[in-house]
Structure formats: structure tokens, C-alpha cells
Write a protein that binds this DNA or RNA. Structure first.
Lengths: 384, 384
DNA sequence: CCATCTTTGTTCGGAATCGAAGTTTCAGGT
DNA sequence: ACCTGAAACTTCGATTCCGAACAAAGATGG
């Protein structure tokens, strides 16, 4: 597939295509054309030769990689109470990352201000100020319209509704900015960094809220923009709890971190955050363990029809609650108990390979895809 | 996208690309190259000029279509008690179709024998014996492994397990044969003939059994081969009924045509087929109507999480039960009552546009895609 | 009814791409 | 050590493909 300079760069960036010959095989172009193009790309400073690889029975391949000076992107994971940020090179390698506190409830203006400060500091610390910044990827903990690059109808995010964070950041920085929902980004991140050769994956992010991202045939599935929502699926529980959506039996109202904290508080146990909740579980506090296990069972029951229906290669469990072993075990149990053998036979159920970085890395991956698919490659080539 | 003769033929076949200029726009090739290629394709007898179209403010386009003598494919829908068959031209137009009785329980050898007889007769009746037969698409009412082109682990299909129907038919006919599950084919057929410009669609086939096919980004989603299974999702019902899978609360055990007939028989009402059941409903037999409405409600409840999760553009209801208005109304009701507004806002819920032909047309569409993506186009061109 | 703008399709020279043959380098066998 | 085959590139003539200009045909608007 493909037949242009951009395709070659993309293949190298994704980690396939490590030599001219391999690029020729993967791109479908003639070896001679690939050689010419690669030479140009090296001349333009986009690619770089990186020693020789192992022979496979003939001449050793001259390995190719993206030139580290070609540029960087910044990936941001905006959480409810924190901001995680990283600088990535064009191959998706993390050059520097860190986490800072930050309340999303402070509103978009204040958050953007802090993001920009952070971003400049991060670029300085990573010592890449002299390299071109090619794009920024931002994950938000709420529904996102990726076209307009803004948050829509969020709960727990006062002031953010319809705020065009993408356009604002883009104007202020002068670079491409992509915005996406955090659960979707977790799926993208886990797919790229954890299961790159599995085509169908779903990632469940169980933290303060519950979300799900879907990778179909290697690409993020957005549906009409709301795909992956599992938080308001009805579950069968003895006592109803009113959810923000108006129903009383939503998964989110009974199994999210917020719901569990509420229940514990009613039992006289104050919990400050999802991480605190997991600490209680790992410390063996029975009330917490019971609750978390029950949450896992409910989530698992919701996932059963989805796994049968979607029949993925991998089910990734991420978010705060996934750090609690009973939660993961309960999800696994519910799935294996009730899904079709055909659906579970080759199914991997795993916790997030990239842990707390998943969303941030997903943001990086998404913006990298955008950058490498843009005219930037051709423009850089043309500029010699 | 694309850049070869095959792509042009595909574009014309799909109904996009009706003139040289349009082909150039859609294929990305230069207008001059398209002109040259089209000329060759006309010379080779694959395309044909078909008068002039309406002007759009300039010169009128010289419309292109596939030459009707280029070849045909045969589409087969093997049901439990019938076989439907059609001859299609390369653009997917039905030249002739008919339905014959046929018991799948007679086993593969006997069914194949009858299929071949039917096929020869059909080609004769359609007066296309002199045209090349380029492929056969077959729909089977059970799980299919499309790679091996055989049925796997079927219920209600004695003797069919692991039978390589695709290879056998292919050997006997000397042409490409594709085999696929009937619900998947319903999705393909409805997508192509009913909702060609909607990218995400799910089709529920509620007949003797209950199945579901999924179109994601315009292409059939198979997952690991079992995607779309909704028949063994647990539903909440007062009295358990043992399903073939060993559980007692599967959707199929309570809402499939077979289940409804069983329940009616226990009430002393004998029903011979799903069609008979629908007749009873339309005749206003209250027991039947109540049952069918309840089945719709159960199916709808199962679909709620799937619609939220997948967020499709269209939900197609097909199969025998979809001819019963109370069934459709109950599904609609359950979805609108409980799905997210974001998921239902732009959702179309419709009965199958192509009615009982959906699976058969899907089989035709699938084999056409295969044929037009194969080397056949280039070979025909090379053969002058 | 004529001038102008649009859209469709074609012509043809120049540039990009291919592909077959050749070069370099290495593994494996004898 | 030497030969053979194989893989990774490179060279270079032949071919294809593009793209700009042109021709054809028609809508639009005064």
C-alpha cells in the first residue's frame, strides 16, 4: 500500500520498515524507487542510517530510523486532578515525561494557561527547544468531538462544554492539535505500545468514571462520535442509585470509582481518590475489597455481550481500579463464565501494559499519525 | 486511493465513478491516465459507454458502466428449509432470482448436488450461459470460517461440521467461491443496497435463530471469526429455558423464532414456521402477538449496550420476525427508552430494505468484491 | 444570441517510476 | 577455502504516469 515519501516515513515510524528492502516489500514500491526516496529523506534530515542489522542469509540490511532532530510532539493527558505530559520523538519514543497536579474544575482558561507553561518547561527540560514542535495531542476525561476538537456535554467539568480547546491551543502554539477522549486514547496507546500486531482491541478505563475505547482493524472506532460508551448500560443491582443521566441502574452509578467512594463514605470510610481506594484494597480492608470485586463483576457482566459481539483479540483493563487485583479477577471471571467459548478461546484479558501512561501515549500516537499523514513530510522534502 | 485498472472497475461497479472525470477525482489518478485506462477497459469488453449524463454546468459526462457481457456471479442463500439463488451482473444488478425448497438437514452432499442443478438451471434461465461465471457467494445459517470456507460447530445442521463447502464447490465449478454466515451477509447486503453511504451499520437477523452482522467503516467486521454473536447473551426472564449452549437465559432460548414456536406449542398452538408465526400475529392472534412483542423487547434490551458501544449509523432489523410489526416496535421502544441520547439521536432503525433478499444480495456483494479485487481484471486486460 | 465561465475529456512532452540486470555482502554447505 | 545461493541494495534504459495546455460541449447571464 501507499507509494509516496510519507508512506515510507510512516512505515519507519511505526517500527515496520527497518531497511530499504523491507520498505520496498511493505510499500509495494520498486526497490530502486525506495532507494532514491530514502536518499532524499536522509538528505532532508528526516531519516538516518543506524548501523547494520543481522543478516538473513545475505547482505546485511542498512537499518533506517527517524532522525531524532526531525522534530518532536507533545502528548498531554488531562485528568480530573492531574496533568501528565510527555515529549515524544517521531518514532513515538518518550524523551521526557512528568506529572503535575492540576484541577480540571478550574475551567478551561486556567487549565490552558498552565498547560502552556508546562509545555514550555517540558520542552526546555527535554532539551529539544531547537527542534520543531510538530503537534500536540490532548486527552480529556469526557466526551470529545474530535472534528471540532472540543469537549461536549461533560459531567464533572464545569465551564468546558463546547470549549474549543483544540483551536485555542492551536492558535497559541501555531501547531496542529488533536483532542480525544481519554478512554479512546487508552485504547490507541495500548494498541500501539502493547499489542501492535493485534487488530481488534477494546480498552476499558475504570477510574473515577468508566469508559471504553475500541480499536477495529487497527484504527480507532468513533462511530458517530459516542462509540465506546458503557457507563450508562443498565446493570441488575438490588438497590437503585440515581445516575447523572436520570436512570437508576447505570453501570457508572454502581461500579465507578466515584460510586464506590460514595458507598464507602456511607459506611463511614472516607476515601480521597481512586488510588486511595486501591490502597485500601491492597491493605486488605474487607469493605473496600468486597466493593471493588462487586464493581468488577458488574463491569464484567456489561462486557459479556460486548465481547461476544465485537469478538476482540485483546481486552485491556486500565484506569485506577485496574490496579486492584480483585477488580481484574472479577472481570475475568464474569467474562470467562458467560462469554462464548469461541469468543474467549483466543481472547487476551490483560491490564494496561503502559499503566498510567496509556492515555498520554495514545495522545502522542494519535498526533503522530496526524503529523506523519500530513503534507509536512512532502513540504520538508521540498524545502530540501 | 488506488491507482490501477482494478480500482477503476471497482469504482464503476460500486456505482460511484460514473464518468472519466469522476473516476479521476475518486481514484486520485490523473485524468489523462484514467482516459487511457478506460479506453483499454472498453476495448477489453469490461466497460461500456452508456450515453451522456446531465451536465453540471459544463460538458456532459460520457457515462460509464460495466459491460453486461463481462461476466456474472451467482449468489446463494442457503436457509434451513429453502434455497434462494440469483444471477448478478458485475454491477450487482439482479438478472434473475428464485427460491426453491431445500432441507439443509439433508446434509452437505445432497445440498451441494441440488445447488449445482439449480445453478445450471438458473444460468440457463437467465440466458447467460455463454458469459463467464466469475464466482459464487454462499450464505449459510450458522457459524462460518471464511478463510477455510466451511461451516464450524453448527446447531441444527447435522453433518455440516467442518465440511469444506467452499473448496468442494470451487473444485466442481472451477470458480472462486466465498462462504459466509447469513447474518453477516444480511449486513453486507443491506449496507450495499440500502445504506451505501453509511459507514457503520449493524443488522439483526431474527428468524429461526438470532444473529447479527456488523459493518464497520464500510467493511464487514469478523473479529476473530465469531463477531456479531448475540444469541447467547443473558437476558432476564422469569422462567429459565435450557439453551443448546448449556445456559438457561440466552436470548436465543427466549426470543428466537424456534423458541417462540416451542412456547406456542406448549399453549396448544401449532406453528409450522416463522412465516406462519408472523401470519398469526398479523391475523391478530393475541398469544402470538404477546410473544413476539416480548421477544422484541428482549432483543432490544440486548441491543441497548451494543448500540451504545458501537454507536452505528443504522440498525437494520431483518429475518422472519422483522415482518411482525409488534416485534419491530418493541425493539425500537427498548432502544429509544434506554440508549444514550447521543447514540440514538442520529440512529436509523429500519427493517431490511431488501427484505428476504438481503442475505442473498450480501453473498453476491461479497463475491463481487472478491472478483473485482482479484487479478481477474488485469488478466482480462492483458488477454486483450 | 453572444461572451464567459464550468465541466469533461484528450494530446503530448517531461518527469517519475518501474524492473531487469548487476554489485556487494553474507550464510551455509562441501 | 571455495562455491552456491540469497538477501540488500544500485544502476540504468524502458515504460508509465502525470500535468499543463488544449479542445469540446454546455450552462449562465446579460
Amino acid at each position: 500500500m501507499g507509494g509516496s515519501a510519507g508512506d515510507l516515513v510512516r512505515l519507519v515510524a511505526k517500527g515496520h520498515g527497518r531497511s530499504r528492502a523491507e520498505l520496498a516489500r511493505l510499500s509495494g514500491m520498486a526497490p530502486s524507487s525506495v532507494s532514491l526516496r530514502v536518499e532524499e529523506l536522509i538528505e532532508a534530515g528526516l531519516l538516518r542510517e543506524d548501523g547494520e542489522g543481522a543478516s538473513r542469509g545475505g547482505r546485511r540490511p542498512r537499518q533506517l530510523r527517524l532522525h531524532e532532530n526531525a522534530g518532536v510532539v507533545v502528548a498531554v493527558d488531562v485528568g480530573t486532578h492531574h496533568v501528565r505530559m510527555a515529549v515524544l520523538d517521531l518514532a513515538g519514543r518518550v524523551l521526557l515525561e512528568h506529572e503535575l497536579p492540576g484541577e480540571i474544575a478550574e475551567g478551561p482558561e486556567r487549565v490552558i494557561e498552565r498547560l502552556l507553561d508546562n509545555l514550555r518547561m517540558t520542552l526546555r527540560q527535554a532539551e529539544v527547544e531547537h527542534l520543531p514542535l510538530l503537534g500536540v495531542g490532548i486527552g480529556m476525561p469526557g466526551p470529545v468531538d474530535p472534528g471540532a476538537a472540543k469537549v461536549v456535554a461533560p459531567s464533572r467539568m464545569p465551564g468546558w462544554n463546547d470549549f474549543p480547546i483544540g483551536r485555542r491551543m492551536s492558535e497559541l502554539l501555531g501547531v496542529r492539535v488533536v483532542v480525544e477522549n481519554d478512554a479512546n486514547l487508552m485504547a490507541v496507546g495500548e494498541h500501539r505500545y502493547g499489542w501492535p500486531d493485534r487488530d481488534n482491541l477494546m480498552a476499558v478505563k475504570a477510574g473515577t468514571g468508566i469508559g471504553c475505547g475500541i480499536i477495529v482493524s487497527g484504527r480507532l472506532h468513533r462511530g458517530r462520535g459516542a462509540a465506546g460508551d458503557i457507563s450508562h448500560v443498565p446493570v441488575h443491582v438490588p438497590e437503585p442509585v440515581t445516575c447523572s443521566c436520570g436512570h437508576s441502574d447505570c453501570l457508572e452509578a454502581h461500579a465507578s470509582g466515584a460510586a464506590l467512594r460514595r458507598i464507602l463514605r456511607a459506611q463511614g470510610i472516607e476515601v480521597s481518590s481512586s488510588r486511595h481506594l486501591v490502597d485500601l484494597v491492597n491493605d486488605g480492608v474487607p469493605e473496600a475489597t468486597t466493593l471493588v470485586r462487586n464493581a468488577g463483576r458488574l463491569a464484567g457482566q456489561v462486557l459479556v455481550p460486548l465481547v461476544n459481539f465485537f469478538n476482540p483479540d485483546v481486552l485491556v483493563l486500565g484506569g485506577g481500579l485496574s490496579a486492584a487485583e480483585p477488580f481484574v479477577a472479577a472481570v475475568r471471571g464474569a467474562i470467562y463464565e458467560r462469554c462464548l467459548p469461541l469468543a474467549t478461546r483466543d481472547l487476551e484479558i490483560a491490564t494496561a501494559v503502559t499503566g498510567r501512561d496509556a492515555c498520554m501515549l495514545g495522545a502522542g500516537s494519535l498526533v503522530l499519525d496526524e503529523v506523519l499523514a500530513s503534507e509536512w513530510v512532502d513540504d520538508t522534502l521540498a524545502a530540501r
